[in-house]
């Protein structure tokens, strides 16, 4: 494989892969590990990947690695404490200077509360939610990457949204000051 092609793929996909891992795992170190592992796998297996499907391949590998890391982290949590949410929380809290600061604060707090709630989902569903809502991937794109049907994905997301119903209702109704310290 040409190194140049690899570096182009790295440059064009690294932020997407890192963001997917960061919001799925909510831990910057784990996200870095996953990103690194994804691209090392890409280097190792590039010859066997259809060039037109590299994006989907990267998505699937990221998804699978996020699940693996989540399970591993859950197993380790009893011994080594909790994941480091600081990087994600800071990223969500610190926004550009555009817009009303109070609205930005409210949005950040709602997002943080929703990210907390997403941790109650299975790693697999959480990753799918990130792909669909954050990365704006169409269901058929996710289905193609994960080898799942669109209807199965719809049901999965629908159930997840239902399980988050209470959180979504709360974050919609609670004023920003009262939400401080949520999570």
């Amino acid at each position: 494989m040409k190194r140049q092609i690899y570096e182009e793929l790295l440059a064009s996909h690294k932020d997407r892969i890192y963001s997917h891992a960061l919001y799925s795992l909510r831990d910057a170190h784990d996200a870095e590990d996953v990103t690194q592992e994804v691209f090392l796998k890409l280097w190792d297996r590039y010859e066997s990947i259809d060039p037109e499907k590299v994006g989907g391949w990267l998505t699937r590998v990221t998804h699978n690695l996020c699940i693996d890391h989540s399970r591993r982290r859950k197993a380790q949590r009893n011994n080594f404490g909790h994941p480091d949410h600081e990087a994600v929380d800071t990223l969500v809290a610190v926004r550009g200077g555009l817009g009303d600061p109070e609205q930005n604060l409210l949005l950040s707090q709602r997002q943080a509360a929703l990210l907390d709630a997403l941790e109650t989902l299975t790693p697999e569903t959480r990753s799918v939610m990130i792909m669909h809502y954050f990365q704006d991937m169409k269901l058929h794109e996710i289905g193609s990457a994960l080898d799942k049907s669109v209807s199965a994905l719809k049901v999965q997301i629908h159930r997840a949204r239902k399980s988050l119903r209470l959180v979504l209702t709360n974050v919609a109704e609670t004023p920003p000051q009262a939400q401080r310290g949520t999570g």
């Binding site: 919001y23 809502y133 954050f134």
Partner: peptide
């Protein structure tokens, strides 16, 4: 709730992959 989910998760800031990686 579906619209809210789109707004909240879709409005998350994109994260840049650290240069160290």
């Amino acid at each position: 709730r579906e619209i809210q989910m789109r707004e909240l998760l879709g409005g998350l800031p994109a994260a840049a992959c650290p240069e160290a990686v």
